[in-house]
Amino acid sequence: MERADLVFAIANWLALGGWLALALAPLKRNALVLAARIAAASVAAIYVLLLARGLAMGGGLPEGAGFDTLDGVIALLSRREAMLGAWIHFLAFDLFVGSWMAADAPKAGVPHWLLLPLLGLTLMAGPAGLVLYLLLAAAFRRRGRD
């Protein structure tokens, strides 16, 4: 197995463990949210190591790479190592957002059975899950005040 494939597998398994902890959060919410956050931080640490390694190794950017155009971003992510970093970036941030949602849900009055599909959506399409959670939590908070 190539090193990049191993890093990919490790990051995926760490993130999956964090998502499993969030799914089981009602059993022991504080400890399981903390476990998910530790998993997210571990995945983020892998990202930092990849970023530092990439900067140290140099090699320059692909021609046309940059953040100012869509084509520039496509060029930026055209290398396998860059795509691995981008994927790990998604894993870390989506898991952290999910952990925040699981910690916030009891305060908002959102039952865990309603949170579960939103955690799944956050895993698969991060911002969509977050937006729907924010709307649902706002509705539950408003209902609790009325």
Rank of each mutant, 00 (worst) to 15 (best):
G18I: 09
S78N: 08
D104M: 02
L51M: 11
V43F: 10
A39K: 04
E63H: 05
G17P: 01
L123Q: 14
R53A: 10
L70Q: 03
G58F: 11
L51Y: 14
G60M: 08
D68W: 06
R145A: 12
A40C: 05
G98N: 01
L14D: 00
L130I: 01
W13C: 05
D5S: 02
L123T: 01
I38Y: 02
L114M: 14
R3I: 11
A4W: 06
W87C: 00
I10Q: 09
A11Q: 02
A65I: 01
R53T: 08
T122D: 07
E2F: 07
L84R: 08
D104S: 14
R80C: 02
D94I: 04
A45L: 15
D94Q: 05
L130H: 06
G120C: 09
A128P: 00
A44W: 05
W13H: 13
L91R: 13
R141K: 15
L114D: 13
R80P: 00
V7E: 13
L115V: 09
A92R: 06
L116F: 09
W13D: 13
A25N: 01
R80G: 00
A128S: 08
D146G: 12
K107L: 14
Y133T: 01
P111F: 12
L119H: 07
L14G: 04
I38T: 07
D146N: 07
D71Y: 05
P117W: 12
L95F: 10
A39S: 14
G60K: 07
G126V: 00
V110Q: 11
V48S: 13
A44H: 13
L32S: 02
R80T: 01
L51C: 03
A21M: 01
G18K: 08
L115A: 05
A44F: 12
A86R: 09
E2A: 08
A56K: 07
I10R: 12
A25L: 03
G120Y: 09
A40D: 06
V33N: 00
S78P: 00
L34W: 09
L16M: 05
R145P: 00
L49Y: 09
I38A: 09
G129F: 06
G17Q: 08
N30M: 06
I38V: 14
R3N: 02
W113K: 08
I88R: 15
A15R: 15
A86C: 05
R80K: 15
M83Y: 10
L76E: 02
A39T: 04
L115N: 05
G98I: 01
P26R: 04
A45P: 10
D104F: 13
A105Y: 10
R37K: 13
L135K: 07
S78C: 10
A138M: 08
G59Y: 10
G109F: 13
A82S: 14
L55A: 15
I46D: 04
A125K: 12
A21R: 03
G54R: 11
L135T: 08
L70T: 04
T69P: 07
Y133R: 02
A103F: 10
G144L: 01
L32M: 03
A125V: 03
P117Q: 11
A21Y: 02
F93Y: 12
A41W: 07
A40S: 13
L20M: 09
A36E: 06
A52V: 07
V97C: 08
